[in-house]
Amino acid sequence: MNQDVRSLPIQVDAVSAVPALDIDRVSKSFHVAGRRVEALCDVSLSVQAGAFVAIVGASGCGKSTLLRLILGLDTDYEGEIRLDGKRVRKPGLDRGIVFQEHRLLPWLTAEGNVAAALRRSGLPAAEQRRQVAEQLELVGLRDFARAWPAQLSGGMAQRVAIARALVNRPRFLLLDEPLGALDALTRLRLQDELARIVRHERSTAVLVTHDVDEAVFLADRIVVLQPHPGRVARVVNVNLGLHRNRSAPDFLRLRDEVLETLGVRHAAPATAAVPS
């Protein structure tokens, strides 16, 4: 049932010996009202530098918890999470995160919010200003640099949050359902932008989503989680090339496959079926 993902055939294309992100048999439980609730159970996953991994699963299956562990916000768990072979102990600027709610500071302008992420960067002030302007340009919000978050639409606020996550040029970009709260049209548009931005930044990305289309559109690899407790049900490689067409037959077939895994409870773990 709980298989070691690293032993799957998809790992054959592993290039370097030490993966950039290595999640090694991680289990995590919470104590709720005196009872132990298992959120993650024996989750293993390794991600090579520059890869784009999507994690999909029903809500409550531990996706956000996994990201919090990678961030180092919570270190009370079993197993180990390593970045370039070193265990994660606390948050660091090598990891940028976009939360599901944009989580902008309402008392800072768009610009100020992005700049806040550079407080600890040690860059000189002029360089910080340049970086902030560049990131806002990248997410297409140059003209809104001085706007308060309350004056931005949901999509714009989320783009500021993306700029904030990217401004430190993190090696890892973690995205926790970043587009989940947006309307369908804005979501499609921002998916295109995310693809472009991540390619431009060349960072290693972990995207949590419950939108399977989004996962197939953006990721090189899709990890399907199963709830209660959260564990890896299946890993699917996506070999659809750089420019993906949301209505191409290959795309749809892959999507349906992932959906099937999600829809059927306690499905027997299939070996990663890679459509050719």
Binding site: L73, P91, G92, R119, R120
Partner: peptide
């Protein structure tokens, strides 16, 4: 709590936390 968490993610020190959050 989400804002306290944000401060941790951005590796704010005590003074940054007080001043900015």
């Amino acid at each position: 709590a989400p804002l306290r968490e944000l401060a941790a993610v951005l590796t704010f020190g005590r003074l940054d936390y007080i001043r900015l959050i």
